[in-house]
Write a protein that binds this DNA or RNA. Structure first.
Lengths: 196, 196
DNA sequence: AATAGAAACGGACTGCGGTCCGGTTAGGGG
DNA sequence: CCCCTAACCGGACCGCAGTCCGTTTCTATT
C-alpha cells in the first residue's frame, strides 16, 4: 500500500551490479588513456580491461563517445571544485569580470590538455555532458552579475565556443600554439559581449 | 630540358579518369541523398551507384566526411553567387549592417535545411571546406566595412558559431524550432561585436 | 605508333562500433 | 528462506569506414 504513486519518481535506481560495472569501466578507461593514449580505448579493450562483456559498455554509456564524455566529466570534477570554492580569481571572491577572464584562461588550458579526449567524445566537450553544462551555467551567472541583459544562454555559448576544440583546431596541431594571443582576442570578445 | 624547376608548381594536375570519377561520385552522392536520405550514403552504396570501386571514393575524397563536405560545398555554390552578385540586402548594394543581418538569417536557414548532411560532414560546415571558408571571409569583410577593429578572424568565427549545427543541436530536433527568436538573439550578439 | 612509368583503379580484407538474445543474478514479497 | 520477475550480463554477430596491393589506364616522350 506504500508507493502507490511513484508517478514522477526518479527512474528506478540502478542495481548494485550495474553500479559496480560502471565504475569498473570508468577506471579501466582512465587507466587505458593514461597508459596507451586515447586511441587505445576501443570498446573491446576497455571491456576486457574492466573484466566485463562488451555489451555492458554500451548499456552503461550508450556509445564510445558516451564513455569518453563520462571520463571527461570525471576529470572535470576538480576544476568545478576550484570554481565553486577555490582561490580567486577563478574561485569566488574576485570581481565578476576578473573571474570571467580567469575562467577563459583556465578553460583554454584544460581544453588544450584534453584535446584528444575531447575529440574522442565528439568534438565539443560533448555539449550534453554535465561538465560542459556546468561551465555554461557558471558563465551565465557571471554575465548576469556583470549586468548583461539579453539571451544569456546564447551569449554564454557564443563566448565559450571559440575556446572549444573544433573551432581552435586548425592552429591546434602546431607545437607553438599561441595561447596568449588567443586569450587576448578572447578577452576582447568578452569585453564586447559585456559591453564593458 | 624544359621543366628543370617545377619547384613550386601546383601539385601535378589530375588525370582525366580521376576527374571523371570525382564527378561520377559527386553526382551519385547527390542522387542518393535526394532519393534515400543521408543515411543511405554508405561508401559502398555511393561507389556502386557511381559504377566505380570503393577505393576510389577514398582516393578522391579521403573519407566519407570528405565526400559529404564536397557535396555540401557543391550545393553552396548558388548561395555564394547570391552573396557576390545577387539582390540586396544579401548581395552587394545594401549597407554592411543590413548585409550582415541578412547573412545571418540566410545562414541559419541553409543550416537548418542541410542539418543532416552537415552532421554527416562532421558537425561543423566542416571547417576546412571552401564553403565555410567563404562565409568566414565574407563576414570578416563586412566587419571591416563596419569599422570593427581587433582579431577579425576570431570575431567572425565567434559570430558564426551560434548558427552552426552543433551549437543549435539541443533545440534543433523539435519541430517548432524558434527561428525568429534565435535570429533576434543573434542580431543582438552581432550588435555587441560590432559595438553598434 | 610504340613504350615506359607514374598514377589511378577495384574489390577483397581488416578492425571497430554497435546490436541482439539466451542465460544469469539481484533483491523484494510471500 | 525460497521464489519470481525484472533488470542485467556477455560475447557472438553484423554493417560500415577505411586499407592494401596486384592490375589497369592514362599520358609524356621519342
Amino acid at each position: 500500500m506504500v508507493d502507490l504513486l511513484p508517478l514522477v519518481g526518479d527512474p528506478p535506481p540502478e542495481r548494485s551490479d550495474a553500479v559496480r560495472n560502471r565504475e569498473l569501466l570508468l577506471r579501466a578507461a582512465h587507466a587505458l588513456v593514461a597508459r596507451c593514449g586515447v586511441e587505445a580505448v576501443t570498446t573491446d579493450a576497455v571491456a576486457t580491461e574492466a573484466g566485463v562483456g562488451k555489451g555492458t559498455v554500451f548499456r552503461r554509456f550508450g556509445s564510445r563517445e558516451g564513455l569518453m564524455t563520462a571520463v571527461l566529466d570525471d576529470s572535470e570534477k576538480a576544476w568545478q571544485a576550484a570554481v565553486i570554492s577555490g582561490e580567486p580569481p577563478l574561485g569566488p571572491g574576485a570581481p565578476p569580470w576578473d573571474r570571467l577572464v580567469a575562467l577563459g584562461r583556465s578553460r583554454l588550458e584544460t581544453t588544450l590538455l584534453n584535446a584528444d579526449l575531447i575529440r574522442a567524445a565528439g568534438g565539443f566537450g560533448r555539449r550534453s555532458g554535465p561538465a560542459h553544462l556546468f561551465t555554461v551555467l557558471h558563465v551565465r551567472h557571471l554575465l548576469r552579475e556583470l549586468g548583461v541583459t539579453g539571451d544569456l544562454p546564447m551569449l554564454a555559448t557564443a563566448l565559450l565556443a571559440p575556446l572549444e576544440v573544433p573551432l581552435l583546431d586548425p592552429d591546434l596541431r602546431r607545437a607553438d600554439f599561441p595561447v596568449d594571443r588567443v586569450l587576448e582576442s578572447w578577452t576582447d570578445l568578452a569585453r564586447r559581449i559585456v559591453r564593458e
